[in-house]
Computed example of a mutant assay.
Amino acid sequence: MQTTGNTITALVLALGACLAMPVQAGWFDQAAPLVVTVDRAYIDVYSGPGRGYPIFHALEKGEQITLLKSRTQWIKVQTENGTEGWVKREAMLATLDATGQTPDFSDASRADSVAGSFEVGAGFGDFGGADSTTLTLGYRFTQHLTIEARYAQQAGKFSDSEIIAGGLTHQPFPDWRVSPYIGLGAGRIKIHPSATLVDTVDREDSVLQASLGTYVYLSRRFFMRLDYTNHYLLTTRENNDEVNEWRVGFNVFF
């Protein structure tokens, strides 16, 4: 169908544009690095970004440090005398910025704490008038890109179906609490017509998927997911089929 072809083409172009979009700057890659003052008796400094690295230095209360970069739950810092090391992100809650307030690291941590993480979720919705249930397993290999496997079942009045598919989703603004995304995927759909129909032969076809949706972060690693997916079924009949699906669900990173 021409309408579906235009929809998928537009989403392909949108995905390409988002992939070419510059990454939104965070506090660690701005022109002027953030300088904070320690507001605790001491903060341990590690030689590397992990608990397995040794503690080689301690920051004292009143000492100023410059934040250089972020890696998951760790922040690289530099002291006034040039010593560099890694501090746990949670320890930054014991620092003050130039205004005397604790800096807000929540948005930055939301984006980079899930890079390199798996996510699993379940969603429920409407698949062209049929009730749908979807299970997803994804791997976020960058802040912006997730590769995802999906298994879905649909229960309708005239037929039931199931879909196994894989796809790629892109979040252009992963730091946002309400973070939109677009996705493309492909797989197979197996349709089981109702036994009361004349033609009860099961059918299996290829399916292309184009999605628009948003993550709504409820915590750093738990979120609600809303999306709309256009399914384009490549059938062996004279005309291909098109089914639209609306879905809501919950996912968790681990």
Rank of each mutant, 00 (worst) to 15 (best):
Y42K: 12
D29V: 06
L93D: 04
F28L: 03
G50S: 13
A20L: 13
C18S: 05
A108Y: 15
K76N: 02
A98F: 13
Q64P: 01
S106F: 12
H57Y: 15
A98V: 09
G100V: 14
A25Y: 11
L96P: 03
E90K: 14
E84W: 08
N81V: 00
I65P: 02
T83S: 07
Y46T: 02
F105P: 04
L19K: 12
T66Y: 06
V36T: 13
F56P: 07
R40G: 01
E84H: 06
N81W: 01
V77Q: 03
T102S: 11
V77E: 00
V38A: 03
A31D: 09
T99I: 10
T72E: 08
V35P: 02
W86E: 00
V36F: 14
D44S: 12
G85S: 08
D39I: 01
T102V: 14
E63T: 05
F105R: 08
N81E: 04
Q24T: 07
R110A: 03
G52R: 11
L68I: 10
P49D: 01
P54T: 00
S109R: 15
Y46H: 14
K76I: 00
Q30E: 07
E63P: 04
V35E: 12
S113C: 10
P33K: 05
V114W: 02
T102W: 04
L59R: 03
S47I: 04
R89N: 01
V87W: 04
V36E: 08
E84M: 13
V77D: 00
I75G: 01
I55R: 10
T99C: 06
A91M: 05
P54V: 01
V38S: 01
I75F: 11
N81I: 00
V38P: 01
Q64S: 09
I75R: 09
T95Y: 06
T37Y: 11
N81F: 01
T102I: 12
K61V: 00
T83I: 14
N81G: 00
F28Y: 15
R40A: 14
P103M: 09
A17V: 05
Q30T: 11
D107L: 15
V35H: 05
K69G: 07
A20M: 12
G100Y: 15
L96W: 07
T79P: 02
A58L: 12
T37W: 12
L19M: 14
E63L: 08
C18H: 03
Q64T: 06
K76S: 00
Q64H: 09
W74L: 04
A41S: 12
L68D: 05
A91S: 06
K61Q: 08
E80F: 05
R110C: 05
D107A: 15
I65V: 11
F105N: 04
A58C: 06
W27L: 09
T37G: 07
A32L: 09
S106G: 03
F28D: 13
Q101K: 15
T79N: 04
